[in-house]
Design a protein around this nucleic acid. Structure first.
Lengths: 167, 167
DNA sequence: GAAAACTTTCAGAATATTTTGAAAATTCAA
DNA sequence: TTGAATTTTCAAAATATTCTGAAAGTTTTC
């Protein structure tokens, strides 16, 4: 297998995997492309490489930036904007975990509170529903804390071990 | 707010949240409906309550069973199949975590292995790509182990504390 | 300030996913 | 067996999401 072919497979695979976890295929492919590229790429290069429209590239680059997975770079002597991916896979994983936590857990807590607020605990049936809501809040809170804890400890582990190199 | 209204909101909200994390809306609504129901329901009752077709109900009930979130029940004197949800929210959360781990992490490892196998480490460029793949495998493995560990420890914590009640 | 270079927006088109409902398959009672 | 009750399947319809591309907006250069 040629390198080019392997890279293409990587990009294609990454896109397909993404759809299985509710993330846009093109966004993932752009991410994969930048992850494999040693130099920064501009919109035209991405359009050309992945054969997609300018609008699509633009929207997904902005999304990837809000996910904290890629960075914009202004190169001297260039009018165009260039983009490069975060190459530290641990950092990538932490960013994804943080973003998904924010997108998946926070809304649960908000919605449950919303329902809870409007329902008085004045009957057995109401109390039953309130119990379920409270349980969901407990579990969601646990998940939230656990993820944050794992991210933090992973982060400080890396920091510690990185600092040791300079001791 | 009436109980009925609160329940409807719960079901509706649960469905909307689900779409945000890549899970089918109807599947989540059926799950929510069964979660709030004290008795088992059959396909007709679910069709009626959520105003959806028989085929849709059937497919999603089967999906929910593979997720381990609901159970089929055969009631004496009834031809129809009845369904009830797992009510222990901790168990529900563990099931969801297990299933998502299986669906999201296992495929990454498989795909990366696939690409890795075909690419010889005979040039700097090839080694670079292999390094990225190895890094992804490391991180995915870490995530896999961490999730399993959290699930297991949560499970044994519950078991310990449950057994204490009988001491 | 004008125009060239580039980025962003967004309505409509293309694609993908979900849902329907009727037909086929299965189960069960007699 | 038969046939009524129930479940399952799946092609087509409905819905939702993503993508395109041209127009509008912005920035930079001269």
């Amino acid at each position: 297998m040629e390198l080019k072919e392997a890279k293409d497979r990587f990009i294609h695979t990454w896109g397909t995997l993404a759809t299985q976890w509710g993330i846009n295929r093109t966004m993932s492919q752009i991410h994969a492309l930048l992850l494999l590229s040693s130099r920064s790429l501009n919109a035209d290069e991405i359009m050309d490489e992945l054969q997609i429209s300018r609008g699509n590239v633009n929207m997904n680059l902005r999304d990837l930036m809000t996910w904290g997975l890629i960075y914009k770079q202004l190169l001297p002597g260039e009018r165009k904007e260039f983009f490069h991916a975060e190459k530290d896979i641990w950092k990538v994983a932490r960013q994804i975990a943080r973003e998904r936590r924010r997108r998946e857990i926070a809304p649960i807590l908000e919605s449950m509170d919303e329902i809870k607020k409007g329902l008085p605990a004045d009957s057995e049936e109401n109390k039953e529903l309130l119990k379920i809501i409270a349980d969901i809040n407990t579990v969601a809170g646990f998940a939230d804390n656990t993820i944050e804890m794992v991210i933090k400890s992973e982060e400080s582990w890396l920091k510690t071990n990185f600092l040791k190199l300079f001791k």
